[in-house]
C-alpha cells in the first residue's frame, strides 16, 4: 500500500538518511526504534513532505512519484491520505478541540460543517474526549492534548497514521492514557507507523519492528525476533539501554 525506496536526506553536510526503504501493508502496525538522531523523525516527515528528501521514491496507492520532485497535487493528496501525530501535539491554540479536528475536514477534505462536526465528535469519542470538545488546548492536560492530536489525525480516516514519539513529551503518569488509545486504534485495524520507545506498545500490538541507527535500517522483524534474538550488536546494545531506562522508572 505504501512503499518508500532509497530515501536520502542531508541537512548541510550532515547526511541523516542514507538510503532507507520502508514497506507498509494495510493494517500493519510498524514500530520504528532507534537512538536519538538516527533519522526516525526525518523519515516520517519525508513521507508527508514536511521534509523534502534529496533522493527516493514513494508509491502510495495509485500515486507513484519522486520524493524530490513531487508536484503540489501529489503532495496534497498524500497529506490527505496520512495523519500525523506530533511529539509536541502542535494543536492549534486558537481553536477548540473540536475545531482542531474540523479544520482539516472542512478546508482540506471539503466536508460540510455538519458532516465535519459529526466526524470530529466521533473521533473525539474514540479517544475518550467527547466531553472536552469545546475546550481550548490550554485548558487540557498534556495527555488530553495528545489524544486530541490523535483524534485530529484519524478523523479524516487516512490510510496510514504516522506517530512521532507521541508520548515522549508527556509526564510519566500521562503516558498510559495515550498508549491505551493507541492500542485500541491498532486493534481496530488502522495502519500505523509509530516511532516510540515504549516497548510495551511494540510488544503488544506491533507486527513489525524496525531498528534504525545512523540513517539506515539496521534490522527489522517481528517484535519477538527483535526483542529476544536481535542479530545486530547495535540493536542489542540499544535494547539493553532502553530496558534499563524502563527499569529506572520503576525505581
Amino acid at each position: 500500500m505504501l512503499e518508500l525506496k532509497n530515501v536520502h536526506k542531508s541537512f548541510g553536510d550532515n547526511e541523516i538518511l542514507k538510503g532507507v526503504d520502508l514497506s507498509v501493508n494495510k493494517g500493519d502496525i510498524i514500530v520504528i526504534l532507534g537512538p536519538s538522531g538516527s533519522g526516525k523523525t526525518t523519515l516520517l516527515r519525508s513521507i508527508n513532505f514536511l521534509e523534502r528528501a534529496d533522493e527516493g521514491t514513494i508509491d502510495f496507492g495509485d500515486i507513484h512519484t519522486s520524493l524530490v520532485k513531487a508536484g503540489k497535487k501529489d503532495v496534497y493528496r498524500i497529506r490527505k491520505k496520512t495523519g500525523f501525530v506530533f511529539q509536541n501535539y502542535n494543536l492549534f491554540a486558537n481553536k477548540t478541540a473540536l475545531e482542531n479536528i474540523t479544520e482539516g475536514l472542512i478546508y482540506a477534505h471539503n466536508y460540510s460543517k455538519d458532516e465535519a462536526r459529526e466526524k470530529a465528535l466521533k473521533a473525539l469519542r474514540l479517544v475518550g474526549l467527547e466531553d472536552r470538545a469545546d475546550y481550548y488546548p490550554s485548558q487540557l492536560s498534556g495527555g488530553q492534548q495528545q489524544r486530541v492530536g490523535i483524534a485530529r489525525a484519524i478523523a479524516p480516516e487516512p490510510e496510514v497514521v504516522l506517530f512521532d514519539e507521541p508520548t515522549s513529551a508527556l509526564d510519566p503518569e500521562l503516558v498510559g492514557e495515550v498508549l491505551n488509545v493507541m492500542k485500541d486504534l491498532a486493534k481496530s485495524g488502522i495502519t500505523m507507523i509509530v516511532v516510540t520507545h515504549e516497548m510495551s506498545f511494540a510488544e503488544s500490538v506491533a507486527n513489525e519492528v524496525i531498528f534504525m541507527d545512523g540513517g539506515v535500517v539496521v534490522e527489522k522483524g517481528t517484535p519477538k525476533e527483535i526483542f529476544s534474538r536481535p542479530k545486530d550488536p547495535r540493536t542489542e546494545l540499544f535494547l539493553r539501554r532502553i530496558i534499563r531506562k524502563d527499569y529506572d522508572y520503576v525505581i
Binding site: N94, E103, G104, Y107, A108, A153
Partner: peptide, 27 residues
C-alpha cells in the same frame, strides 16, 4: 507562534495560505 502549528496545519492538508489565514495570523 512557532513552526509547529504551521506544520500541523500542512499535515492535515491545508495550504500554506489557509494555515496562515486560519491559524497563524489570528494568533
Amino acid at each position: 507562534i512557532g513552526q509547529g502549528q504551521m506544520e500541523a496545519a500542512l499535515a492535515v492538508g491545508l495550504t500554506p495560505w489557509q494555515a496562515m489565514r486560519r491559524i497563524i495570523i489570528p494568533q
